[in-house]
Computed example of a mutant assay.
Amino acid sequence: MLEHFFQCPYCWEEISMLLDTSVSNQTYVEDCEVCCNPIEIHPQFEENELIGFEAIDIEQ
């Protein structure tokens, strides 16, 4: 597991999330721990190293 910090696309607060490095390409939805809005998360890993990360506002 890898702790990753990023800005919420709704409230712009910095939040942290634990990411599973064993799956190379992931997509899932998590609620912001500050404002509770849903965020679509897209982490990408190569050899257990984070190579890409997107946190998208799904209510656009």
Rank of each mutant, 00 (worst) to 15 (best):
M1E: 10
L2G: 10
L2N: 11
E3T: 15
H4M: 06
H4A: 02
F5C: 08
F6V: 03
Q7Y: 13
Q7S: 15
Q7M: 13
C8N: 00
C8A: 03
P9Y: 03
Y10I: 03
Y10W: 02
Y10A: 01
C11Q: 08
C11F: 13
C11N: 07
W12E: 04
W12D: 04
W12C: 03
W12V: 02
E13Y: 05
E13C: 03
E13S: 12
E14M: 11
I15K: 08
I15R: 10
I15H: 09
I15Q: 04
I15W: 09
S16Y: 15
S16G: 15
M17D: 05
M17A: 03
M17L: 11
L18V: 12
L18F: 10
L18W: 14
L18G: 05
L19G: 14
D20T: 11
D20P: 10
D20K: 08
D20Y: 15
D20L: 14
T21N: 15
T21V: 15
S22Q: 15
S22Y: 13
S22R: 11
V23T: 07
V23K: 11
N25W: 13
Q26H: 08
Y28D: 02
Y28G: 00
E30V: 14
D31Q: 12
D31F: 07
C32H: 09
C32R: 11
C32V: 15
C32F: 14
E33Y: 13
V34S: 11
C36V: 06
C36D: 03
C36F: 09
E40I: 12
I41W: 04
I41N: 05
H42D: 09
P43A: 06
P43V: 04
Q44P: 05
Q44Y: 01
F45T: 01
F45G: 01
E46T: 02
E46Q: 06
E46W: 04
N48H: 06
N48P: 00
E49Y: 00
L50S: 02
I51K: 03
G52K: 13
G52T: 08
G52D: 13
E54Q: 14
E54R: 14
I56L: 08
I56R: 09
D57Q: 09
D57V: 05
I58R: 12
I58G: 05
I58S: 14
I58N: 04
E59P: 00
E59M: 04
E59A: 09
E59K: 05
Q60M: 06
